[in-house]
Design a binder for these strands. Structure first.
Length: 335
DNA sequence: TCAAACTCGGTGCACCGGAG
DNA sequence: CTCCGGTGCACCGAGTTTGA
């Protein structure tokens, strides 16, 4: 069977077919400038009928835009972050594509800025989204001097740098408060990589809850950088020796490793020790007992980061309705 | 050999003619 | 004169073609 190749229309073809100028067609599509409703309808009907799609490269050429956004990811991200990135990316891509933007992912190796340099030199992107784990000060300093705007996912200490972030500190505080209100007085904290801001924020929340409730923190029960099984097992061993009555894990992967370590030691949850986590991801979905956890909407976080950047790029009015929050999922592990 | 002109598809601005 | 609805053309950037 002979396959008939579909004609790809240009704005000029439409103008010719409809007996108007290219500018008129462009206006009918963009909605900018003065044009009669009748002409606009005619153009739109033609576009619909012939499935016309504007050439984004040409559009970019005329507007000096690329319609690309860079997403900077850390090259050395650990397993605990995978689900975060996945959800975040879903949100970013969804928001970007609704404005005809595409995402270019660039893996950043420590303080090496060569990837960003290349994107900038080749004018590949209009803006940059920096995932929270790219924290090297050299990278941040470089970005500040970049001509492309950027937004940070995660806390920003610099008031000039736009950012979006989950309410990590508040969530850490609330989760800890819940444990303290249940009467636990010897809480352990298993934290992630200390070079990440999120770890610091959640730790601050943990401390604040103690302070507010007038409970002193047992320094021997604070474990950081427990992002691998060996470190978690060691922490679990020590927190049991120290007589901890509850464990707050900074994320689900840490919690999952912690549960595995407790099982190995035949310590039962929640009968012998309570445990709570943050992030409420698939990692713990089928755990028995169900784990009390903070649920963040990371897809929304990604969407919001992208929306804010699009706003800076002049593409999108900023919606106040796009706010971030979290839910506390109270389950059997803390009962 | 090499500078100038042209190419792609779309945008933005200056401007035009007709109507009120 | 002003407003409306439209036109014409320069321009965007980089590669290719033309022609002196």
């Amino acid at each position: 069977m002979e396959t008939e190749e579909k004609k790809i229309y240009t704005i000029e073809d439409i103008a010719r077919e409809l007996g108007v100028s290219k500018t008129t067609v462009s206006r009918a599509i963009s909605g900018k400038g003065r044009i009669s409703q009748a002409t606009r309808d005619r153009v739109r009907a033609f576009i619909k009928e012939h499935d016309y799609r504007p050439n984004v490269v040409a559009k970019g050429l005329a507007q000096r835009k690329t319609y690309n956004i860079a997403l900077l990811m850390p090259k050395d991200y650990v397993a605990t972050e995978f689900l975060f990135f996945k959800d975040c990316m879903n949100g970013i891509c969804e928001m970007a594509s609704s404005y005809e933007y595409d995402i270019i992912i660039s893996m950043i190796d420590g303080a090496d800025v060569s990837q960003i340099q290349r994107l900038e030199a080749n004018r590949k992107v209009d803006g940059i989204i920096v995932s929270r784990a790219v924290v090297s000060s050299k990278v941040q300093k470089y970005l500040k001097n970049c001509k492309e705007p950027y937004i940070l996912i995660g806390p920003s200490s610099d008031p000039e740098v736009p950012f979006v972030d989950n309410k990590n500190q508040e969530a850490g505080k609330e989760l800890t408060s819940i444990m303290l209100m249940k009467g636990f007085r010897n809480l352990a904290l298993l934290g992630g990589n200390q070079s990440y801001n999120v770890t610091g924020s959640r730790y601050q929340g943990f401390l604040e809850a103690h302070e507010e409730m007038g409970v002193s923190v047992n320094e021997n029960l604070i474990f950081m950088d427990t992002d691998n099984q060996a470190a978690v097992s060691d922490a679990v061993k020590r927190l049991l020796e120290e007589g901890a009555d509850g464990i707050v894990c900074m994320d689900d992967v840490i919690c999952s490793m912690c549960l595995s370590s407790l099982r190995e030691k035949k310590i039962s949850v929640p009968a012998e020790i309570k445990i709570a986590s943050m992030y409420d991801s698939k990692n713990l979905e089928y755990n028995n007992p169900p784990i009390t956890s903070i649920r963040f909407d990371t897809v929304r976080l990604g969407k919001m980061a992208c929306a804010k950047l699009l706003n800076i790029l002049g593409e999108k009015p900023l919606e106040d309705t796009l706010t971030l929050n979290y839910q506390v999922m109270l389950r059997e592990s803390t009962q």
